[in-house]
Amino acid sequence: MQEHVCLIGFDEPEITVLKQQISGRVTAHPSLPDYRVEDGQLYVDNEQGGWQSHVDRVIFHGIFEEDQELFVALALWGGPCFPNPLGMLACRDKQACLVRALSQTRYPGRGRGYVPAGSVVNLQSKQVAKWGNWHCGENKARIQGEWRAEFSSTLEPFYPGDAVRVVLLGEEVLQIRLAGDDWLKSIHDPTADFMEVDVELADDTRALARYFDLPVIANDYIVGDDGQKYLLEVNHIPNVTRFPLIWERYAALVTDWCQT
């Protein structure tokens, strides 16, 4: 009997590609569908809405404001889900995820701080404040001197150097040199490109992936001008469409997973 696979969070044309590669019935929802877990079974809206159908497997990709409730439901369901909903829960709050990751990484750096909303600090050196749960360079500011935190924020020293992303896709590791015209670096800059994999950063990324029990993860690091390395953040749902090579490998990974 063929399984019913539910894709959540993918856009076109990725949905079309995965539907072509995954055998059996495939339902796709670009945004969060309605769902329920009942008597150990997961039910999700059909693509046209309305009546819900029993689902055998879930492939989730995306970041949504209310996705933590879905992760709780998927964890209680206990069925096959890519990635592991417990890992996604552990990472969904970006600040808590960072604290967990810093306790495990070989490259935590020093001098991190935290400022509750409404607090004022007076910083003697350049630092980076980060708040909220969004990635892609949002909710960040480089600060120095007196600064008032509108939102509860983590603080980290501003590390001069090269920003890189180390991407783990199952057993494979790829590394990207992030780029940008100012201090904010991103994979979305047109000059961002693949580079030789740093073995130490690859090992660190594998270790964090094991810790969070996630088959796909992308860690952002700074390789400092002094040669030191610093973990900046963990992306538990990293972009997999910016580079065709990464999408190709990711699509193959989830397609193979559906056959296990």
Results as ranks from 00 to 15, higher is better:
residue 188 H to S: 06
residue 198 D to V: 03
residue 137 G to T: 05
residue 71 F to D: 00
residue 164 V to Q: 08
residue 203 D to C: 14
residue 260 T to D: 07
residue 202 A to G: 06
residue 102 L to P: 05
residue 84 N to V: 03
residue 253 L to F: 05
residue 178 L to N: 01
residue 105 T to A: 13
residue 242 R to N: 06
residue 1 M to N: 09
residue 35 Y to I: 03
residue 152 S to F: 13
residue 53 S to E: 12
residue 49 G to K: 05
residue 170 G to K: 06
residue 230 Y to I: 03
residue 235 N to W: 03
residue 235 N to R: 03
residue 158 F to T: 12
residue 32 L to Y: 03
residue 84 N to S: 04
residue 249 R to P: 02
residue 99 V to F: 14
residue 119 S to I: 08
residue 175 Q to D: 01
residue 183 W to T: 12
residue 117 A to V: 11
residue 208 L to W: 02
residue 249 R to Q: 09
residue 8 I to P: 01
residue 260 T to A: 10
residue 164 V to L: 13
residue 15 I to A: 06
residue 131 W to D: 04
residue 25 R to G: 00
residue 136 C to K: 15
residue 50 G to L: 11
residue 204 D to Y: 05
residue 53 S to V: 15
residue 154 T to M: 09
residue 249 R to V: 04
residue 2 Q to Y: 14
residue 206 R to C: 05
residue 123 L to E: 09
residue 112 R to T: 04
residue 228 Q to W: 08
residue 90 A to H: 02
residue 42 L to E: 11
residue 22 I to Q: 00
residue 61 H to R: 11
residue 172 E to Q: 14
residue 64 F to S: 05
residue 134 W to D: 02
residue 19 K to M: 14
residue 176 I to L: 14
residue 122 N to T: 07
residue 65 E to I: 15
residue 179 A to G: 05
residue 122 N to W: 14
residue 91 C to I: 09
residue 201 L to W: 02
residue 219 N to F: 09
residue 86 L to N: 11
residue 146 E to D: 10
residue 12 E to K: 15
residue 80 P to L: 12
residue 232 L to C: 04
residue 228 Q to Y: 07
residue 32 L to P: 01
residue 217 I to Q: 03
residue 156 E to W: 06
residue 194 F to W: 04
residue 3 E to V: 15
residue 68 Q to V: 15
residue 97 C to M: 15
residue 179 A to D: 08
